[in-house]
Design a protein around this nucleic acid. Structure first.
Length: 470
RNA sequence: GGCGACGUGGCCCAGUGGUAAGGCAGGGGCCUGCAAAGCCCUUAUCCCCGGUUCGAGUCCGGGCGUCGCCUCCA
């Protein structure tokens, strides 16, 4: 497959280091608060990338870390008067709950920075020995100008960075561009012993240390949100390649979630947490929404967009509900065009996904088939046609799984989130059926209207009446 | 100021030089007791101006507009 490599700024064929295996490191979250929809986008994207590679028969080792020691965690702990560990644990748990609810599979390995302090110290010592790091006042900094390739990933030039004058002022640094590898601890702050005195890791070093520890000094894919590209990933490259590692071959960055055309972010305060959204929309709706735009483009978050995504997911489940009523036996006897449509879905799907994870095009391939086989089902194309529709449904489910979509039971999907008691609904449907048989249309419609008022939509068809949430 | 991305029908969104996928919404029709769902039909000078090419939404240049990174941020 081809993936856009931020390092070379073009799509490149993914050629794994070890045949048949792919190693991925994606930067996770700093656990100091609940995750919002922006975090969900990154998590869902890498989840889908991983599932697709597995679908293609590759063995994927997917690492996603937790940054569990950091200034923001400490600040939050101080505000609440609890330990930093308590804050970190609380939000790791919240992250697992929210991502799990979104259908994001746990990564193969989910390391925490604080479990890898030894490796971090070791890496900093290595850099110090190479003259790329220096201790100053209990801290250790990276000597940015010593690393010739600095700026390669972000396309920034060291001289231009300095003129920006937006760099942290710090008297002990040799150069304003230098960044912290190790931070000396003040009393009461989390601290680990080190050659430079008690302290804790800087932000960027943990990802270098953990990725190389777990995946090796050279691995296939490293990624995260676009905003991590600079300085975080640039600094990781400086740290790892500075220490002589080959490091990541392909850098993959997902775009932002916007609100009213503006980046959703903590600092702007214009965010919705995953939990808030899942309160109002099913996980699959959120996933389809996130996957309906290419991962590198910005995506605008709105109620309207979510509502449209819900209608789209409903459309697929409506098809599955109809198509799965029959068996797929003998479907190859169906007209050639239908057989080709079934066989062609995986081809179209894979072609789209092979091209830099084009989930929007992959979804389009599914929707094309939904329309085609809805026609087959309404026009009653005989037993073979119905069998082909059932076969198509099975393919939609199999490939939907790669996106983490369309795995629910249609009835469960359409009945979820309804307040009324199901037996009560069935009783009203039976009463309406009696009225219809007596041709008492006024009474039949009154019952339907009553249910509609409770958000229940009735559908007559195939001699039966079914219901779903509106 | 430096670097970069984007601008496709009413809305969202795909499109790897050869006359535009898909979703949502609207209108008309079929089906239905009426509906709902489904199906059929229906709407695009691809931001503007130049250029390259037999041919450009797709490549190049300029303009306008929007956004992002350069500071913690998925």
């Amino acid at each position: 497959m081809r993936l856009y490599n931020s390092l070379t700024r073009k799509k490149e064929e993914l050629v794994p280091l070890r045949e048949g295996e792919v190693s991925i490191y994606a930067c996770g979250v700093t656990v100091y608060d609940d995750c919002h929809v922006g975090h969900a986008r990154g998590a869902v994207f890498f989840d889908v990338l991983r599932r697709f590679l597995e679908h293609r028969g590759l063995k994927v080792t997917y690492v996603r870390n937790f940054t569990d020691v950091d200034d923001k965690i400490i600040r939050r702990a101080n505000e609440e008067g609890v330990s930093w560990r308590e804050i970190a644990d609380r939000y790791i748990e919240a992250h697992e709950r929210d991502m799990g609810a979104l259908g994001v599979r746990p990564a193969t390995i989910e390391p925490k920075a604080t479990d890898h302090v030894d490796e971090i110290v070791e890496l900093v010592r290595d850099l110090e020995g190479r003259g790329l790091a220096y201790a100053a006042g209990g801290d250790v900094f990276y000597r940015v100008r010593r690393f010739a390739d600095y700026g390669q990933l972000s396309g920034k030039r060291v001289d231009e960075l300095e003129s920006g004058a937006r760099i942290e002022v710090n008297d002990v640094k040799e150069d304003p561009l230098d960044f912290a590898l190790w931070k000396g601890s003040k009393p009461g702050e989390p601290a680990w012993e080190s050659p430079w005195g008690p302290g804790r890791p800087g932000w960027h070093i943990e990802c270098s240390a953990m990725s190389m520890k777990i995946l090796g000094r050279e691995f296939d894919i490293h990624g995260g949100g676009r905003d991590l590209l600079f300085p975080h990933h640039e600094n990781e490259i400086a740290q790892s390649c500075g220490a002589g590692a080959g490091f990541a071959h392909c850098w993959v960055h997902n775009g932002f979630v916007n609100i009213d055309n503006e980046k959703m972010s903590k600092s702007l305060g214009n965010f919705f947490t995953i939990r808030e959204i899942l309160d109002r929309f099913p996980a699959e709706v959120v996933r389809l929404f996130l996957l309906s735009t290419h991962y590198r483009s910005p995506i605008d978050f709105s109620d309207r967009a979510l509502t449209e995504a819900r209608a789209a997911v409903d459309r697929v489940y409506t098809f599955l509900k109809q198509a799965e009523q029959g068996a797929a036996e003998g479907w190859r006897e169906a007209p050639a065009a239908l057989v080709a449509a079934v066989d062609g879905l995986e081809v179209d799907f894979d072609t789209a996904m092979d091209d830099d994870v084009n989930t929007a095009a992959a979804l389009a391939a599914i929707f094309e088939r939904v329309r085609l086989f809805n026609r087959v089902l309404t026009e009653g194309d005989g037993a073979a046609g119905r069998a082909a529709a059932a076969a198509m449904a099975a393919e939609v489910r199999r490939l939907g799984a790669v996106l983490g979509l369309f795995q629910d039971d249609p009835e469960g999907w359409f009945h979820a989130g309804v307040d009324l008691d199901e037996q009560e609904i069935e009783a009203k449907i039976a009463a309406r059926l009696a009225a219809r048989e007596a041709k008492d249309w006024a009474r039949a419609d009154a019952i339907r209207d009553e249910l509609a008022g409770a958000g229940i939509v009735l559908e007559d068809g195939g001699g039966k009446t079914t219901w779903r949430r509106g």
